[in-house]
Every structure is written in C-alpha cells, then in structure tokens.
Design a binder for these strands. Structure first.
Lengths: 331, 331
DNA sequence: GTGAAAGCGCTAACAT
DNA sequence: ATGTTAGCGCTTTCAC
C-alpha cells in the first residue's frame, strides 16, 4: 500500500504538500495538485484508516445492531442502510443481538471499542422488557450518535424512524371494509411489543370508526411453532371474512391451514399479512402483504445519523421522529 | 477513554512499563503488573484500535461477503462465523454482494481498505458465471487470507468449506428409497450453480445404484416467481411418490400446490426440501428438510481463516477442503 | 525491573 | 506556495 511518504519521495515534495494536495487545500498550486493526484491514482493510493482514525478521532464508520438477521424485514432495512452508508463513504459494522439483552450490551461495547461514529439500532425484545437502556444512554457521553428504528424506546433522547403502525393497519383494515368485509379478525405472534399494541390499536379504531367494533376479534399466538392447533380451533369456533396478520409468519401458516383444512371457507376470506414481498409468494395464491418499506427506513435512519455525525460540536438539534406509512399490496 | 499515558501518570511509571505490564511481558515485576492491571480494570481501559492497527498492521478483524443475506442459510452461516470470531476476539465486517459481480468487487475493496486480516466469502452467482476472480486473487499479494464456503471456485488456491452436496442428496434419496419410494422427482430453482450439479448428481447416483435410473425425473424452474403454473403442469403430467427440492423455496411452494390443488395425491407423496429448519414450519404438515448445518460451516470457515492469519510469515500450509455432510430431518 | 525514544501514517498549526 | 514539526496511542528496541 502506497503511503504519503512514498508519494512525497517520488515527487520530490514534502509529505504535507502531498497531504494537502490530496485534500484540495487552497494553499497548494494547481499544477502540484494535478501531479500529486495523478500519481496517487496510478499507485492506487488509499489513506490508511488507522492513521486517519488515530489523528481525526473519526472512523467514518457506523454500527448497526439488529435483533434478528433472519427476519427479511431487518435484512431489508440493513440493505437500505448499507447502500446509503456506502454512498456517503461510511463503512458499516453489523451486529446481531438475537433479541438478547446481554448480546446487545456486548455489541454496543464492541462497536464502541471500534470507535464507530454512530449506531443505528432496533432494540432487542429482552432489552425492551427489562427497560434497561444504560448501555445506550452511555453513548452520548462518548459522543457516539444514536438512531433508533422500528423497535423504539421513548426513554432515549435520539432520532427515531418507525412505520406508523397504527395508521398503517388502520388503512389496511379500512381497505378491507371498503371491499365489503365486516368480520375481520386479527392474529398476532408479536407478544407485548409496542409494535403489536399500535397495530392492534389501528385495527380497533378502523372498526370503531365504521361502527363495527363489536366484531373485534383478536387471536394471540405465543410460540409460532405451536400455532397449527390454535389456528384450527380458532377457525372452527369463529366466523370471519377477512384476517389481518400483524407478524411475519402467522399469515402464511394461517392461509395454509385454512386453505387445506377448510377449503370451503377459504374462498370467502381475504388475508392480509405483515410479510416481506418475497415471502408473499410462498403461498398459492400469494398473500396480500403490507409493504413495510424497509429499505427506505434504512436510508432515512442513516441520513439522520449522518446529519448528527457531521454536526459541529457547538451545534444542537432536537430529536426527530420520522413516521413512515406502510402501503398495502393486493395481489 | 483512558490511555496508556493516563494510566502511567496516575501510577507514576512510564508508558512503556504500563504497556508491558498489560501485555504480561516477563521483564516487569509481579507487583507492578498487579497495580497496573487493577487500575486498567477500574478505568475500563481498552487499547485504541487505531493506534494498535497502525503499529501492528493487524486489525484483528475479518470480512464476510455473502451473496444474499435474506437467505436463512447464509444468515445462519453468518451467525456461526460471528460467534466463533467474537470468541477469538475478532471483529466481523459484513458485506452483501446481492449476487452481483460489481458489488462483490466493491466489497473486497472496502474490506481491503479496512485492512481486515482475512475474508470469508461465498461467491456471487454473477461472478461464478463471469469466471472473473481477479479481485480475490489480488488478496494474496496483500497478505489478506481467504476462505471460501458453499459457492466455491476451484480456481482459487485457498481453504474451502462446503456441504458435500452430492453425498448429502444421495443419502436423502436413499432414505426415500428405503421407505419404499420408487418414483422420486427432483425440482431445482438453482440454475446452473455447481451446487445444483452436485445435488442432481447425488440424486441420480442413488437411483442408479438401486437400479431405477429410468425413473429419473427433473424439473428445473427458472424464476421462482413464475413457479406456480409450472408445478401444476408437472403434477398433472407426471406420476411420483416422492419429491426432493434442492433449493430453499420450491419445496414449500410445491407442497402447497400439491396439497391444495391435488389433495388426493398429496397423501402418498413424501417431500424433502433444502430449507432452513425455521421455514419447515411454514407448511402444515411441516416439510422434511435437509439440515445444511450453516452454523457449523460458519465456525469451521472462521477457524480455518484464523489458522492462516496466525501462521507465521515463513510457515506454509496447503489448502484444506472441508466437506460437511448434511443430515435429513423427517418430521 | 524500568524507562527513553523511535516510528507506524496521517493532519494541521506554524514557519519560511 | 511549500516545508517543518509535533503529536494522535501504541509497541518495541535498546539503554540504564
């Protein structure tokens, strides 16, 4: 790897001249700049990240902490973040908490030791339950910027990006009602996450606004693995003409069971599910799905983070809370 | 962040004493070591990565390039790598090539600029088609170690880890035959990947060894999105009592179509699929699946890489090719 | 057993 | 317009 020293030697100038020329300092002659840049290009000079970081205290890198990389939604957000980061010249370090508090704490420490300029996080379920955010609060004193997305704690004074879950599900429900559906059931495998609360809220308020709140029917499944029996019982014991699944699995399973075990009822039931576009094709016919716009959320998150990182020491800015409304794709 | 300088000042010793004490150099007194380590612990001293890297030329980090993070298999391999790496004190930089050659080249450059000690890669489809591996060959001259897994090019002289696809599918097929199945069809959405060739080879040789090679029946689907019609036609036009899906989607779709549109035939057909454990539960009844042991493959890959990284300048070692045989989980 | 000093590659304040 | 110098935090050789 070429260094400034080597470039300087080849060109018979000093190291600082080379450095300044490459950084377009305006006290260097045009001619010199040109010569330096040309040589740098041919030798494929790249500044040494370690030297740069040591000097500037900035790594030009960010960390991302995801609860679950196997969830296609998070994978898509990650994609959005990485793309935006790469365009802006930032590297991305990725950590997976696997929904574990301990793992999340470790990830934060690892990223801190790597001197990332900022962190984008979607908080682990366990952390949200424990309500212990010290590891994240400490970041402020270390001047590491923080942006939350999706799973957000309001205890943290930082920018956040979220689907407007309530509004999105309200919209979806309204669209079902508009097509004549009246008995709309909701199924959730999300437990007590805020996400779940908001989505359920949206469902309820749509029914309420249409004067059919007596039809509210909610099925909570705990272990997605033991769902099959629960669903069969639910189908036997209830009437419904539409179903909204607010997690990323139950809709698929529900459709399969209904379709296979209750084919006569399947035809009249419209199912909408919070799944990824790609997974919508795992069933036949494909599921209607709620587009969670992961890539956009990722891009927005990164841009908020970048703004904070580039903010001067003395500037301030109040926390921003972005809300994105999901759209429904009827197949 | 505490530095050696600060520790030295507090303890009234020199910086080099502190450094040596923390590194357990044997020319430092036990008493001094103890004092230094204690203070370091209470101040939560962590060596500055930039300074360390600048000095030692080692980043204690590795890069991972995956073709597709949304594929649960790759996500699982990643999990195995990260865990092993973390245990060994290495950081992991993750890149996604999205099956694109250009993106892969960019990822390699990014990782190189970050001075990773080694790279673990599963090569993008496009790169394999183009057969252009220059970006990977260059790594050797930069002393960046390389390990390939899963999608492997034999043109590259480096360690590799793979499922023994042929043997695994041969095993699976044999197990179907052992339960009395004779008309076993194979469906593939993998195109011309080597993986596909080997898996098909295993299928064929099992049938051949059992003297039923006349029953070889292979369906190739190109765009997984347009599969539904192809499958219906195939089911109508062929007889079979078992199906092996060698990719991670078609088995699910196939079972759904067979089950829903041809219920009378479904009962007699055994389906085995190359899917992830978690996805096996997306159908009801759950699919039989071939356990690809992603986490193990990840761990093995990292350990091979680590050995290379820790190899002294003058030591050499011939490339190792690890083969892992998949197991079949009948539900 | 401990310390002083050089140097990794870079930037930036300060000469010239 | 260009060069000199100090220093970021660390390791390591050499001297005491």
């Amino acid at each position: 790897m070429a260094t400034l020293k080597e470039l300087a030697k080849s060109l018979n100038v000093s190291i600082s001249t080379v450095s300044k020329a490459l950084n377009d300092a305006d006290d260097i002659g045009e001619e010199t700049k040109k010569r330096v840049k040309e040589l740098a290009a041919t030798l494929d000079y790249k500044p040494n990240k370690f030297a740069l970081g040591l000097k500037t205290k900035h790594s030009k890198s960010i960390g991302v902490i995801l609860p679950d990389i196997q969830n296609p939604y998070f994978a898509e957000v990650l994609y959005g973040i990485e793309k935006a980061a790469l365009d802006a010249g930032f590297d991305t370090l990725i950590c997976v908490s696997n929904e574990s508090y301990q793992q999340e704490v470790k990830s934060v420490r690892m990223l801190t030791e790597n001197l990332v300029d900022g962190i984008i996080i979607s908080i682990a379920k366990e952390t949200l339950n424990l309500k212990d955010f010290q590891h994240l609060e400490k970041l402020k004193s270390k001047k590491i910027q923080l942006v939350q997305f999706d799973r957000v704690s309001s205890n943290l004074a930082c920018d956040s990006v979220q689907i407007d879950d309530q509004e999105s599900v309200k919209n979806a429900t309204q669209q079902l009602i508009d097509t004549g559906k009246k008995h709309i059931a909701l199924i959730s495998g999300l437990g007590s996450l805020n996400v779940a609360k908001n989505r359920i809220q949206g469902y309820k308020s749509a029914l309420r606004e249409n004067g059919i709140s007596k039809h509210i029917k909610i099925l909570e499944v705990d272990h997605i693995e033991k769902t099959h029996v629960q669903f069969r019982n639910f189908i036997q014991q209830n009437t419904f003409d539409a179903v909204i699944s607010i997690d990323n699995k139950s809709g698929i399973i529900f459709q399969n069971i209904l379709q296979h075990q209750f084919p006569e009822r399947f035809e009249n039931v419209k199912i909408i599910s919070f799944i990824h576009e790609k997974d919508a094709l795992l069933t036949s016919p494909p599921l209607n799905y709620i587009n969670q716009r992961g890539a956009e959320i990722g891009a927005i998150s990164f841009n908020l983070l970048k703004e904070r990182i580039l903010l001067k020491e003395d500037e301030t800015k109040n926390p921003v809370h972005e809300k994105v409304i999901a759209s429904i794709n009827f197949q």
